[in-house]
Every structure is written in C-alpha cells, then in structure tokens.
Design a binder for these strands. Structure first.
Lengths: 258, 258
DNA sequence: TAGTGGTCTAGACCACCAT
DNA sequence: TGGTGGTCTAGACCACTAT
C-alpha cells in the first residue's frame, strides 16, 4: 500500500534545485540567493521550509548566510598547500622566512604569525608519547601560534618541545625566533630536523574553533599532528595544527619504503 | 541602551548543556539522549527549539539521530590509519594482501574490496596533468573500488592509469588483481612504485557521497589524490580516495628534503 | 500501538545591514 | 527605515522502530 519511494520533502527538493543552479553556474560564486521569504513565496512553501533548504546547502559548504545581508554562494579560493618542504633547511636559509609566509605571499596575500602564548607545562599523554619522554619527570615548553592571511585566521599551531632541549634558547621564552625561525634554533642545539611524521585527520570544528578561526557553517577542520625527528631519529618537537579545511590542503611527496 | 552581549539563544544554551554532559561523561558514547519532546518540556521550550539544539550537536558530529529510535551520542571508534607503507613491496610480498585489508583486520573487522567498474576513458585534466599525458591523444583505464569494514563502507578509490601501460594486463579488464594486487602488476610492467605524492584536503560530502558511504550528519570526508611514480620518476597511476573522516586517518613518515 | 525523529505551517519578534 | 537572516512558538501530520 505504501509507495516504494516516498515523495521528496519540499525542503530537499528546493535545496536540490538551488544546488543544481550552483552547479550549472546560474548561481555563480559570490552571487546572492533570493531571500528566504522570496524563495518561500515563489515555491509555495512556508518560510521555515525555504530556510531549511538553505540550511541544507550551508551544511554542505555550498553557501554562507550573512546576517542582515543575505545568503551567498561560497567562492572557492585557491587552497594554501603545505608539504614537507616547509621543514627544508634550504628554504629556511634561502629566504629566511617561514614556509607559511612563503605560501601565503605566493597567493598575493599578506601573512601574519602571532605567538600568543609561551608556557612551561606537564605534557599531555599524546605529546609525551610522541616525544618519548616521561610526563611525570619532564616538562615541555608549549608555544601557541596563530597564522593569518590578510588578517583572516587560517590555522592554529601548538608546538611542544622538551624543556631539556629548549632551556636557555629563544624557543623557551621569546616570541621572536630570529632568522631561519624555529627549526634553525633546534639545529643549533644539535637537533637538525631530518624526518617528520604527519598524522592527519579531519572533523567538524568545536564551538571554540568556530569562534577563534571564524569558520563558516559547513566547513571542517584538518587536524594535523606533526612530529620532528633529528639526524639520530630522536623526536624533539611535536606540533598540532588545526586548519580551516576550505583554505588549506596538504601536499607531500615521499619515497616508498621497502 | 543595548546590552553588550545579547542573551544566548535557548537552543544554543540547551546544546551547550548537552555538550557538557557529553564531555563530562554523564552522557557516554552510545547513550540515548532524552527525546526532543522530553527535552522541550523539561527545559520549557517548544519542541522545535529542542530539536534545533539537537541539530547543533549533530552538525558538530557529537550525536546521531536515528529515525524512530532516538538520538545517540556518537561512539568514537578507533580510526583506521593509512600511510605510505600501504605501497611498500615488503608488505605486498610478505602478506600477499592489500594494506587496506591488513589495516582493517588489525582492528578485528572483516575487510571487503569491491571493484565496481572498469572503463576506458578520456582523462579529466587533473588526472592527465598528474600522469603527464596528453588528454587528446591518450586514454586511461578507470577502476572504481569500494572499501568496506564489516560491510560498512569506509572509502571509495578511483584509479586512473595510462592505457599504454596497462593494455593487456589484468589492470585493464579484471576485477581480480592476483597475488600482490595492483602494484605487483605495475611492477611487472616495469613500473615499481618508488615515490608517491599525496594531496590531501577535506570537505563536507556531496549528497551522493552521503548516500553511497552512508555518512551521518556532521561527518566530513578526506579527499586524497595519490600519484605513484616509478624508479625513473615517471608517474604511472593516479588514485583519488574519498574517505569517511570519522573512520579514517592518514599517518606518514618521511625525510625532510634539503 | 505508542513513542520516536522528520517535515511543515503561519505567525511572531529580534538582531543586523544598508540606505 | 525596510529588508535580511536568526530564533521561537504551538500545533499538525508523516515515517520509522519497537513492543
């Protein structure tokens, strides 16, 4: 007695129609959608139903609502791509600037990196494990960095390194790292970065991250835990990054081990 | 005259309360939330408002609604981790099975890989560019694979390789790759996989992906474009993966080039 | 059959933005 | 000021799950 495929709800039908308009370019990136009230009237539904359709698209990351202005097709700006070159000594020495700055400038945007806090703490288990230290007897220095392009926050990085290594260096207490930045200082202390491990996952942002990184609805974050090893294969720093996934991508090239 | 911080909306307040219950373990993974109607009554709001609160949590990936059953705190199963070892010859030769199978079995789950289509096509520009071929004169073989753990779809992979390389091999026309799988066949044709490039991004799934991979609300996908290079640094295959981000992670270890 | 989530209506008021 | 999205209400019916 029941029909095999129940009728598609009005909100999804409307969402599908708008999605196709976007896919076909009838609604181009940056374009403003009709207002919720207009959509409701022209499609013969209640405003809440039109609103639900818009929300479906927002959850897919296709549109962004701006309070008081309207709903807009989200433009797809080029992604900033980060790979292992960000740790190469040649890059450090030739430009003297960090790979984040290089990548952002390559896109014609203005980079900024703020070190917002430097503290000495007892490491959490995930960090202690990767640094191969005893969390009950050893402390680490925690440096929190915020990365911006044109004042738009792109990623947050938190670097942990053993106190025994960074004691007395700018890493332990200065926001200014000097020429060649962080990894030049590690190298001076006998820890040239030689191998890296990158653990990558993705998820929806927490409310704090939404606020801090100003992340629109429907945009996930990339969660990256980076571990640096020196020429004797000793881990000496762990950095966790949280990146806006609509602004960031990762790009690695590596040998296949046998 | 206006208060500096407008009152928090009731739906967000309720969402925050529930979020804290989850964080504190009062609501453990797998637990059922009170019904929307119960939440509405106990918090003195309309059902739609309680529903909105639940939706906020679903969009964050914290809970999953099951029609007719209730809303449940989403358990966090261990992630399946994939790295460059998945391409190592030693792994191929010692186990004879693909790294996906090995990883899934390591978690006590039953792997399955279905090759759902093999076609010969004109490559799209992104693929042609990575394979360094002329899309107007060369064709590629497209193999689509679906990967399951305990019959739960985890990822989709689409492999493209030049017809000139795979012509006459099982890669071009057989769902069965034989011992050592795909990369053993490439090696036999003079293309041992030596270097890989991995381009990683993340986004919300399309409606097709939601349906195909049975992805719950609030779960992004990891989008991975993999390129394989042989011992003469010639690219010979490109594979694009779409993975459920709540089931998959990537884990690479690589040297830093100077 | 009872209880759950899924969808929808018609209306209201608020907060934000541009003019 | 008028138009926009953001939130909320009180009610309704449908579809799914379990008993």
């Amino acid at each position: 007695m029941t029909s095999p495929t129940p009728a598609e709800p009005a909100s999804r039908r409307l969402a599908r129609a708008l999605r196709e308009d976007i896919a076909h370019g009838d609604l181009a990136p940056g374009d403003k959608l009709p207002s919720e009230r207009t959509l409701a009237e022209t499609h013969g539904v209640a405003r809440n139903t039109a609103r639900e359709a818009v929300r479906i698209l927002a959850d897919e990351g296709l549109v962004t609502a701006e309070h008081g202005r309207g709903v807009f097709v989200r433009p797809k700006p080029p992604l900033m791509r980060f790979g292992q070159r960000r740790y190469a000594r040649t890059l450090r020495e030739s430009t003297g600037k960090s790979p984040f700055r290089a990548e952002v400038e390559a896109q014609g945007r203005i980079p900024r990196v703020d070190c917002t806090s430097i503290t000495r703490i007892t490491p959490i288990p995930e960090v202690a494990e990767r640094l191969d230290i005893n969390p009950e007897t050893e402390t680490v220095v925690r440096r929190e960095n915020w990365y911006y392009a044109d004042d738009e926050p792109i990623q947050v990085g938190v670097t942990y390194s053993p106190w025994s290594i960074v004691e007395g260096t700018p890493i332990a207490d200065s926001a200014q790292m000097g020429k060649g930045s962080l990894y030049a200082r590690f190298e001076e202390k006998g820890h040239p970065i030689t191998t890296i491990r990158e653990e990558i996952s993705s998820r929806m942002p927490t409310p704090d991250e939404v606020a801090g990184l100003r992340i629109p609805d429907g945009v996930p974050v990339i969660d990256l835990t980076h571990t640096g090893y020196d020429d004797q294969d000793r881990p000496f720093e762990v950095t966790t990054f949280v990146m806006r996934a609509d602004r960031s991508a990762l790009d690695y090239r590596m040998p296949v081990e046998d």
